[in-house]
Amino acid sequence: MKFFSLRSIMLCCGLATLLSITGCQRQQDHITLRMGHSLDQEHVVHKAMVYMAERLEHYSKGQMHIQIYSGGQLGSERELIELLQIGSLALTKVSASPLEGFVPRMQVFSVPYVFRDSAHLWAVLNGAIGQDLLNSMHSARLHGLGYYDAGSRSFYTTNKAIRQPADLKGLKFRVPNSQTSVQMVQTLGGAATPVDWGELYTALQQGVVDGAENNPPSFFLSRHYELSKYYSLDEHTSVPDVILMSLPVWKSLTTEQQGWLELAMKDSVRYQRDLWQQASDDALAKVKAAGVEVIYPDKAAFAAAVQPLHQSLQGTEVGNLMAEIALVQGETAEVSND
């Protein structure tokens, strides 16, 4: 049984009027689904959600709408998940990392160097393993609609460059609310500190943490490059974003309405993946222009350094899942970027 934080309960009560108690508002033949997330409106993931809303209106012939609340207006990632569980919000986007607190198998995405490359990642996400992980969230009163590309996560720091694993020693790194992410940083010799994404700029500014890790667009759009002048592209994890829906709200829709939503989701996945690579390239160019030193370390050294973490998972449910993932080849053609 999941327990909700006091802040989440208070937030839910405070938003009861806004969200009409449930995550979807029905007026005659029209349905409006409320969607909240923590990203800036310039982020490609937000743009993909806007496109998803447009496609849903197209498929439903104007009968279904998505109203998006960006920038953490409705709470942190964990709070948004909890609002979905009780049906007070219909949709959200979260990183897969915090989901391990709700569905333990999702911690596989926070284990470093599980995926060989982007093609391997998407072969897994588009295949049986990816679908099974989405389905497993029903046990937490969540329905997984699909995955968005979030690239690979790499370390950035304020005062010391990370060129090899030993350079993490003695430094404090912000990590998402994921025990596996904590273990990864500790295995590399750093100190892990979970900090909410919306509070990270201040934490870097005040020296609460010495650095963090994320993908290039998030590093740029968060303006963390203003404080962190070293970005080391070790690409330790490939953690996708997940579009989640409240299971109670999902079940309240007809089969036809669910089908419209699934079609809109598939369209938005293709759209978002087309945008992602360009956004990553642009972000790296802009942070370099702003004076950030972008470092390309030997990733093999980092992969070797986290082998104790891999070994500790052997024989566990996650370790067995990692072994299945290792056998997956190539990328499925369904969502290729042609």
Rank of each mutant, 00 (worst) to 15 (best):
2 K>R: 14
4 F>V: 14
4 F>N: 09
5 S>M: 08
9 I>N: 06
13 C>S: 09
15 L>W: 02
19 L>S: 02
21 I>E: 09
22 T>Q: 14
24 C>L: 15
24 C>G: 04
25 Q>V: 09
30 H>K: 10
36 G>P: 01
40 D>Y: 12
49 M>E: 07
55 R>C: 04
56 L>M: 04
61 K>N: 13
69 Y>D: 00
69 Y>H: 05
72 G>I: 07
73 Q>P: 00
78 R>T: 05
80 L>P: 00
81 I>L: 09
88 S>D: 04
88 S>R: 12
91 L>H: 00
92 T>N: 09
95 S>W: 10
96 A>I: 01
97 S>H: 13
105 R>S: 12
109 F>A: 03
109 F>I: 03
110 S>N: 02
114 V>N: 02
116 R>A: 15
118 S>F: 15
124 V>S: 06
125 L>E: 12
126 N>Y: 10
128 A>W: 13
129 I>E: 09
131 Q>Y: 12
131 Q>K: 11
132 D>H: 06
132 D>C: 10
134 L>F: 08
134 L>T: 01
137 M>L: 12
138 H>E: 14
140 A>N: 05
142 L>W: 05
156 Y>R: 09
157 T>F: 02
160 K>Y: 13
164 Q>C: 05
164 Q>V: 07
166 A>Q: 10
166 A>V: 12
167 D>W: 08
169 K>T: 11
178 S>K: 06
179 Q>E: 07
180 T>V: 03
183 Q>S: 13
185 V>L: 12
186 Q>C: 05
193 T>P: 00
202 T>K: 13
202 T>G: 07
204 L>I: 04
211 G>Y: 06
212 A>V: 01
214 N>Y: 08
215 N>Q: 06
219 F>I: 08
223 R>Y: 12
224 H>A: 13
226 E>R: 12
229 K>C: 01
231 Y>S: 00
245 M>H: 02
251 K>N: 07
253 L>T: 02
258 Q>I: 01
258 Q>V: 01
262 E>D: 11
263 L>P: 00
265 M>E: 04
268 S>L: 12
272 Q>S: 08
273 R>P: 03
273 R>A: 07
281 D>V: 14
283 A>H: 06
283 A>I: 04
288 K>N: 10
289 A>D: 13
290 A>P: 01
293 E>D: 07
295 I>Q: 03
296 Y>E: 15
298 D>P: 03
298 D>E: 06
301 A>W: 02
305 A>E: 00
312 S>E: 05
312 S>R: 09
312 S>K: 09
314 Q>H: 11
317 E>T: 03
320 N>C: 12
322 M>G: 07
324 E>F: 05
325 I>P: 01
326 A>S: 10
327 L>Q: 12
328 V>H: 08
329 Q>K: 15
330 G>F: 06
332 T>Q: 15
